[in-house]
Nucleic acid binder design. Structure first.
Lengths: 134, 134
DNA sequence: TTCTATGCAAAGACTTTGCATGCTG
DNA sequence: CAGCATGCAAAGTCTTTGCATAGAA
């Protein structure tokens, strides 16, 4: 995705495309992936960026709110940000901490249950925890 | 569950039944529920217990490891401990932070996907995020 | 006695916030 | 110019750790 495509995408989502936000978006949206704030910061630093930690965190929160990325909660010690925003599910390798997508057509949920009264569904997530075969 | 039943249960799981562990277990296993470490500590304090924060955290980790309770990761800011250990799924109310069980027979997963090579499945969790209907 | 648990406070990881500066429209 | 974004460091949460004391087998 080119720099200007990224800028356009930010604008579509109502986000002011500043230099730092463009950098963050370019790295994260480059391909389907799952990164924590710290991993992302590392990647940015590795390619010479000088964004601050606070800006990365703030930017990711902003992106999450406006639907540009999806927040994932699988590891109690950190959040992951998923560049794939449409509904899909995950494997989580409990030993390595690695997340991977479950191919869309390989899992289906049967008979969504009755929600508690007065509530509506926001999302459905299936998480399969895996580990190395011994 | 009586105090001595709790003690027996701890022993079954290879856990030395000390006074503090009995208190923690008695509160958490009293009924099906989902509590964070802090909520549990509050409950204990409310009923006059003087366990320390560190002991509650350590005890919950211990209980999790030996299968006495199930750790839940739904809120990035804290862990929840579930007194129901057999496989089941959850609703998570994103506004109130409340967790509730999904009745076992109301959800079924169809066609478990192929796992990444060399790995085995540890668990499958379905989490349905809900919020109040507007 | 020997090993393990407990309590307290301190350390630690991750994330957010406050505030002054600098950029955007 | 008015308003928002940025960077830095400080503050905040939740959780773990270190160490001395106390308790269990």
């Amino acid at each position: 995705m080119s720099r200007s495509d990224v800028a356009a995408k930010l604008k579509e989502h109502g986000v002011l495309p500043t230099p730092q936000r463009l950098e963050v978006a370019a790295v994260l949206l480059e391909r389907p992936q799952h990164l924590s704030a710290d991993q992302l910061l590392e990647k940015l630093r590795a390619q010479g960026s000088r964004v601050s930690k606070a800006t990365v965190y703030n930017t990711l929160n902003l992106f999450g709110e406006c639907g540009l990325v999806k927040e994932l909660t699988v590891d109690p010690s950190r959040k992951y940000y998923d560049s794939t925003t449409h509904a899909h599910h995950h494997f989580f390798h409990v030993e390595t901490g690695k997340l991977s997508d479950i191919p869309a057509n390989q899992v289906e949920i049967l008979g969504l249950p009755q929600l508690p009264p007065g509530t509506e569904q926001e999302s459905v997530e299936v998480l399969i925890r895996i580990r190395d075969k011994k």
